[in-house]
Design a protein around this nucleic acid. Sequence first.
RNA 1: GCCGGAGUAGCUCAGUCGGUUAGAGCAGGGGAAUCAUAAUCCCAAGGUCGGGGGUUCGAGUCCCUCCUCCGGCACCA
Length: 485
Amino acid sequence: MSFYVTTPIYYVNAQPHLGHAYTSIAADVLARHHRRRGDDTFFLTGTDEHGEPVADAARAQGLEPRAWADLNAEKFKALLPAIGVAPDFFIRTTDAEHKRRVQEVLQRVYDNGHVYKGLYEGWYCPRCADFKTESEILDGNRCPIHEIELTREQEENWFFRLSAFQGRLEQLFESQPDFVAPARARHEAQAFIAQGLQDVSLSRAKLRWGVEVPWDEGHVFYVWFDALLNYYTALGYARAGEDLTARYWPPSVHLVGKEILKFHTLYWPAMLWAAGLELPRQVFVHGFLQGSDGRKMSKSLGNGLDPFAVLERYGADALRFYLLRDVSFGGDGNVGMDAVASRYEAELANEYGNLVSRTLAMLVRYRDGRIPEAPVDPVLESELASLAAEVAAAIDGVDPSGGLELIWQRVRRLNRYVEERKPWELARDQDASTSLDSVLVTLHRGLQVVTTELGPYMPDTSARVLQALAAIPLEVIPPLFPKTP
RNA sequence: GCCGGAGUAGCUCAGUCGGUUAGAGCAGGGGAAUCAUAAUCCCAAGGUCGGGGGUUCGAGUCCCUCCUCCGGCACCA
């Protein structure tokens, strides 16, 4: 079975921040999980580099758009290894191969009769040489940048016949309710359709920084059509000399933030139909990370969480754990450094890290680091045996937070088990040797099970602990999650 | 304004189809234990389920209304 997961491609104008890290980490956890269970897995991320804001920013820096994009794309690329994220390919929409394929697909959309020439009318700023959207203009129809009055102008544009897909989209949401998840995201998409869809412009005549429209060279494609197609084009050239399209298309799941729901749940399926391509199986819409005060993170409020500060203090595994543990994936959540510290100390250091420490210490002290020959305690056997399947079901359903909770129930269970069986008392009693063997084997086995399941979430930690548990003789290792880092 | 979502313990959240005494973690309180990173475990306490009204034998759950917050509102990405 193949599994193809994507993140949105990140717009190069922004600096990499927590939101980018969040989606990338979630996608990475899904990818690692599926890969481990044997699915033929492909994980795509990348950068979106066209459109007017990029051209503007480049100009402001005195750079060519491409040079500016190169600079910023590097920052996004560099973020990934720092947070333990390992995609199979990093696409840039300025890749020549991407552009060629965008033209190919959209030419097909054109040939299939879904495109027509129309008039785009809007508010135009002569100083910006650009149209402004209704939402950004100031009172009195003034430019948000120059504060001068805008003029009503028209431009000849190519339009995509989105309205023609209204019925098909309605049908899609009814017949395939999990196309958009969670349910509240689907409701939002359906409400949007119910309002009635209008055609959208597919090209821009006044802009140069984009993919040229092959049937009309004076135009470039509107950046969203270029950007969405990355999910398709990447498969064509991610591996030199190999086309992966047949192997991975259609995508299993697109992870997206809720601010881009409309593009992924309405425009995207319509465009794929228009091009005669298969639809992704699911668009999963996750929530927003908000500041610890429950408000949107912003520099002026000073309520943001800096991923780089977390990395520096606690490391990549702790950041990955924290984000998926403290915020139920799919909903919004509040995050902050205090909460990171609290999860780190209470759960990673005290509960899990200390469980590793005490288990290894007892095996070393009581059995010279040898794992005794004894059966796993039947009290815990079934609980441990069922964990892998339960976690798999959770992650398959794009609920990584749920999977983590299931793992943590076992971590707590194992600490409780230690207290119940009191191995230090058994060790003082000559007649209890068999019981002690069984307790130690059970703890060793339990740790192996939970640590294996933690693999997709905390790859480094998981690998280190599994190695320590396999060493002969076993040795005490330094604290995995030291306090007061 | 319109559309969608949220409001449950001091904090973060779960709560299925309307059904017994509304659950968990953290923080705070009390205790046990000494294998361990002073880490763990147990116990008790903690609630006007945002306000008001309605339906029902019965409402955190369904309906109406009001308040607060978040996102979107069509071509900024």
